[in-house]
Design a binder for these strands. Structure first.
Lengths: 347, 347
DNA sequence: ACTGGCACTCGGAAAGTGGGAGTGCTAAGA
DNA sequence: TCTTAGCACTCCCACTTTCCGAGTGCCAGT
């Protein structure tokens, strides 16, 4: 890690701050005026020259000012950024969202909208993978002689349902009994394990299985094999906020970016990375490793249920974003979400 | 309605076709060559002049070719467009989507993605308003002593669920009984009517109500009053396809448009309009009445369940779109969807 | 070590230029 | 009377030229 003189640090910080708020290359004169520095433009130029050698800033061309490089941003967030305690206004508007009593699932999904509204950037949220959730119970509900509603509930309160058309019709009590037997047999496993067991059970096709359990397994399998189970667990909101940034108005870049929002693959990988460790993580520009995100930064923070990291919330915006504010917003959102999820949702 | 000589019609049709495929103003010479017309550019110019007077085409400036006006497009789709029977390729790729056995709800929602993929434009779908659906049954499922899962099933197969925290804990059999009583009391109403009845019942707070029904009403009310009931019933997919069109690359217009996709209000109104009558409807440019859609056209078609119109599918794209193809795709999608929904979903 | 001064560079806006595509009009031909 | 060839005209667009100003780097003086 580079180390700078205090003066150079101060300068860099002022420059990045100015560039973030204005979006224009910053010249020595402007910087002196704007930051109220007590030395002259010429001195500033010398220091800038040093910073440029270190790769922290660069000039778009000879007679423009300087703009931060990705490395500059990185240095900035690593060492210069006093993580601001979030504006009370922001916290209040975030907390408001948690007052509404909601399903955990819905609450989590709504976080992307919340983040995009507060930051005016794109909000993203990675929800817990369904397949990893613990199996709580299954129920069969007869809708009509040919249609049965299968309801799958996980330990963390997610609910999945699907209407199936069983081979023969079942009475309500048969269904009840099937559910009971099934729940007894698969209690405590993860959904993924249950799915595997079901496939196994069907493959063996053993005659020794209770008739009623066999029916339950067949019906349940239709739910566990369904695509709802493997759906990409990623939500994005407020993409259109990004249209406001001139540095992203390059049509081709924009296309790539929106493509990434649609395909979700890359973002998902990125969010998976951020789930391995705690606290806010920041991917600046090319650091994410995905071309589509090259002039963007991603700020993420994982959230937990009862101490276990289960997902991530975050924000995507141009590299020129208010890192201090965004970081604190993402951080507090993740914390509040963890809190709301961990001690249940009070009504 | 204007009437044109056959020759003028032919010319207009060729011009619009050419403009749709190339996106450039069309000149007299180009038109003669491209459309293989047997008269000269000069004649074409004369006819164009007439068409311009009628307001069907216009020149962006003196020495450019002509482009269709909205009125021109309107005339085109109204009288010149032989509604092409859809390409077998398109139909096949659409039908493929229906093979997968799905929830009606999911099937409907997936239509927006389907339409956007097939047309390379933005696909939209208005799903049936939950509040209008017929109430089929309600069930209570104890998850834990303090949490009860309420499952609401409508006659058309939609399922809505929510976890609530009742004041006191109920046994499984109590819940069962409560559900039975409730279902008996409210059978056959629409969800909206049920909701109203519940509010009423709670307000009267009558002592003469059975204790068990009263509990059921209280718990049910939490579901019926929830925001899930009033959620905007509109899905949009493939917005990013629209970035490919140069005529929409104007950043401000684009912002407006994407804003409309996010807010949904305006689009919803538009789709509501299209639900009143059968068959494909087309809103060209300003015809929609919404500024955000000013250089866009919207093609919609309602879909039905058992002869009742319940929602709409559609496509949003630039006014310069392949109306023939888009119309047939939207039409066949709506038909296939109606079909799939009406005789149940075979597995 | 800092600063004022100064020559230099370069991008971007403004103004000028030429070419080409397309038009409208007119007059001649079918 | 309708069509067409010819022609003058218009106007955009792409290209160059010019000019200005912001900003730099360097040097010499404090």
């Amino acid at each position: 890690m580079v180390s700078l003189t205090p003066r150079a640090e101060r300068l860099l910080k002022a420059l990045i701050g100015q560039y973030i708020s204005e979006g224009q290359p910053v010249g020595s004169r402007t910087l002196v005026k704007q930051a109220g520095l007590e030395f002259s433009p010429a001195t500033v130029r010398n220091i800038m020259s040093d910073l440029e050698e270190l790769g922290l800033i660069r000039s778009p061309h000879t007679s423009a000012g300087r703009v931060p490089t990705e490395r500059g941003y990185r240095f900035f967030v690593n060492t210069l950024l006093a993580v601001k305690s979030p504006k009370t206004l922001d916290v209040a508007s975030i907390e408001d969202r948690f007052l509404a009593d909601q399903d955990p699932q819905q609450l989590i999904e709504s976080m992307s909208g919340l983040l995009s509204q507060v930051t005016k950037l794109a909000g993203i949220v990675r929800v817990p993978r369904r397949a990893d959730a613990g199996f709580l119970q299954l129920d069969f509900l007869a809708l009509s002689p040919t249609r049965v509603l299968v309801i799958l509930v996980t330990q963390d309160g997610q609910v999945l349902n699907r209407v199936i058309h069983p081979k023969r019709s079942y009475s309500a009590s048969e269904l009840q009994q099937a559910a009971n037997v099934f729940n007894g047999a698969y209690a405590g496993l993860s959904l993924d394990d249950v799915r595997r067991s079901l496939v196994e059970a069907l493959r063996r096709d053993s005659e020794d299985m209770q008739q009623i359990l066999r029916s339950a397994v067949e019906m349940a399998h239709q739910v566990f094999a369904g695509e709802a189970m493997s759906e990409a667990p990623l939500f994005v909101s407020g993409e259109s906020n990004l249209l406001a940034f001139p540095e992203l108005s390059n049509t081709e870049k924009l296309r790539r970016l929106f493509e990434a929002f649609t395909v979700k693959q890359d973002l998902l990988h990125l969010l998976d990375q951020s789930m391995v460790s705690q606290g806010v993580q920041i991917f600046i520009g090319a650091e994410s490793g995905y071309e589509a995100l090259e002039s963007c930064s991603v700020v993420t923070a994982p959230y937990e249920v009862d101490g276990q990291i289960v997902g991530t919330v975050g924000v995507v915006g141009p590299t020129r974003m208010s890192y201090d504010r965004v970081i604190s917003v993402v951080d507090v959102t993740a914390r509040l979400l963890s809190g709301a999820l961990s001690h249940g949702v009070p009504s």
